[in-house]
Design a protein around this nucleic acid. Structure first.
Lengths: 191, 191
DNA sequence: AACGATACTGTACGAACGTACATCAGTCAA
DNA sequence: TTGACTGATGTACGTTCGTACAGTATCGTT
């Protein structure tokens, strides 16, 4: 059973490369089995765990948990780290974790350094939930001078203001009504 | 030819539902063709435009442009956002964008503030590709005193060192051999 | 009206498909 | 030592696969 997780990893790698799952014969080759029927048995086990399902035509397709990623505890003692990872750790589907309302969510690539003290760097992608209202303290995408700007919503007296998270940038005090496009609900970065 | 885009849309819908592409026979059914060979011709045309490709075993897989339209539909009306996402059109999902080798990848929740100047905060999740070697300048997960630590790999003289990205923390100069668990390839955060 | 191009229909075929059944080898507990 | 269990190997088979070739219908151009 322990090998099943390694086999699953290989299927996930194949899927990352090709965006499909292969046939039983190709899976046998991939995993080093001599027999297709070993794949049938493995697939049955992976189906029980919701990693894999069958499409209407009998072909294999990713199951609900196929895109779960291993979430390791950083406090796990490193000496046991490798052995522990696949047995006990939680799993997380990144898209499901970051996006709760797909139909109201857009991704925007950050340009500029105005939010670096909030850990949002140029080139990062922020996840925006489209909303016209926001709470004080939330990071929002507002429309100022017909352009999007990413800032923290603040209030001074009766007026809303937009605070950067970088001392080099000024606070924005909008003339007239502040127009909010959405609220930042997540962020990600690739190295 | 105009119908080809509609046919492609239906394939994209099937893919959105099942996360795989079906066989020629199933595609014929899906599109209302009476003949499998019409699918062969359609596939040839879609291949020329890089919407579809063949996997090594002959099965169909999404091509480089297969996800173009899906991403275009998901962006906001503002031209700005569309342009920002335009270089990411091969990514099916955030997971697909961030993770290239699922079998060697684990997620770790960050504890501590040692890397805040690099935009990695406590509570963020970092995406680790398990590797025993890394390049100078990369952010690594190293094992020091039997614990994971997240730092930037550096070198002083002949010795490897681990630099924090926070002035409040000291540089780590490991006794003996530096042990690397993996390299940070991505990061994400939820608000 | 004739012709060429395009997109589809129909048929055929060797190869591969998913599935079923029997068997074997290794491991572990009693 | 023995039996049960698990995971793999091997074989077989009806169905489906991807591909090739021939033919048809429609449309636009000359």
């Amino acid at each position: 059973m322990a090998n099943d997780i390694d086999y699953l990893g290989k299927l996930q790698d194949y899927y990352a490369d090709h965006k499909i799952l292969p046939s039983y014969a190709v899976i046998a080759q991939l995993l080093g089995f001599k027999s297709k029927n070993a794949v049938t048995a493995l697939v049955a086990r992976l189906k029980l765990l919701s990693f894999i399902e069958s499409a209407p035509d009998g072909r294999l397709k990713p199951g609900r948990r196929f895109f779960d990623r291993v979430l390791a505890e950083s406090t796990v003692q490193a000496g046991f780290a490798t052995a522990a990872l696949s047995d006990r750790n939680e799993a997380l589907s990144i898209d499901d974790y970051l996006i709760e309302r797909p139909s109201d969510t857009v991704l925007i690539t950050v340009k500029g350094d105005s939010m670096i003290d909030a850990g949002i760097f140029q080139g990062d992608v922020v996840i925006i939930e489209k909303k016209q209202t926001a709470n004080i303290g939330e990071i929002v995408v507002a429309i100022v001078d017909n352009e999007f700007t990413l800032k923290t919503l603040g209030r001074e007296g009766k007026e809303f203001v937009l605070y950067p998270a970088n001392k080099a940038f000024p606070t924005i005090r909008p003339q007239g009504q502040l127009e909010i496009f959405g609220v930042v609900v997540g962020q990600f970065r690739k190295y």
